[in-house]
Amino acid sequence: MEKKGKLMIVVWKWLFQNVREEQRIGGGKVNYDFLPVKNQPNDFLLRYDPESDIKESFNFLKAQVSNYAKTHQIQLFLHVSHGYSKDRHSRQIEAFLIKGGKTIVDYYFFGNVNDHLYIRIPESRYGLLGFDGNLGGEFGYEIIKVYDLDDSRNILLKQAHFNSTWDFYYYKFKRRTYEMMEQLVQFYWPLTESGYKISENEETTNSIFQQLEAYVGIIDGKPDKFGLIMEYPDFREALYYKPEVIQLLDDLKKGFSIFETSKSEISRAHLTTLRNAFINLLNALPEKTYA
């Protein structure tokens, strides 16, 4: 079977720089285009900036998904400024993204500049989006170019920017699960070892707890403080392509109940149960922990 290509669809207020006049629809404004990735002929970014209402944009997206689902893995990113919202639109989106109980597209609402899609200097040089509808751009004194131009001045996305953005979303849930397990075990295992006397810093304990709460939020599908559920699709993906994962996630959630009575008095037996629940879940997810 031929390896599938990758299609990343980003719905945003794009500027569409470098679009030639003949590409413009009816001589007017362009509202979508496909940008290939250098040396990866099957991989594309589809930039889309719908002017029409949300329903029409869904028709457009549905048509694209229908065209490419057989030949491409697809990630869909919807910017909240276009009016998309998890509460109002998830059913409509899922209607064309889920086939036979299996998600064929990972989808994400975005709207927070801290999202990994954006280039954030100095935190991350390898996103795709700059500010104001641009791909890459100027960040302080630094110019980050995420594409080259071919001889006909067509955009060719740089592999490093496209691949690292794709991989971040593709691997995120497993990575997050693995890191959560390691953080918990490395923090709590010493506390369950007899004779370990170092007093725990309250700040560290709270930080671990906040992360744990956020993680539980992800697997419960709860929105974050911005009202977005950007990480939920990772869970959904796991859920649909491997239904037994539901049981493993439930086991893990039961394991978390040990923290309800105390943050620091945890028995080795409880910690072992929790660790085993993590391991079972991680082993059920076929992708790598890190790209």
């Binding site: 490395q186 295992w189 010493p190 070892e193 004779g195 370990y196 170092i198």
Partner: peptide, 11 residues
């Protein structure tokens, strides 16, 4: 440096 398991295991 973050890992305190070696300290706990040393005894």
């Amino acid at each position: 440096a973050e890992n305190r398991i070696p300290i706990a295991m040393a005894p």
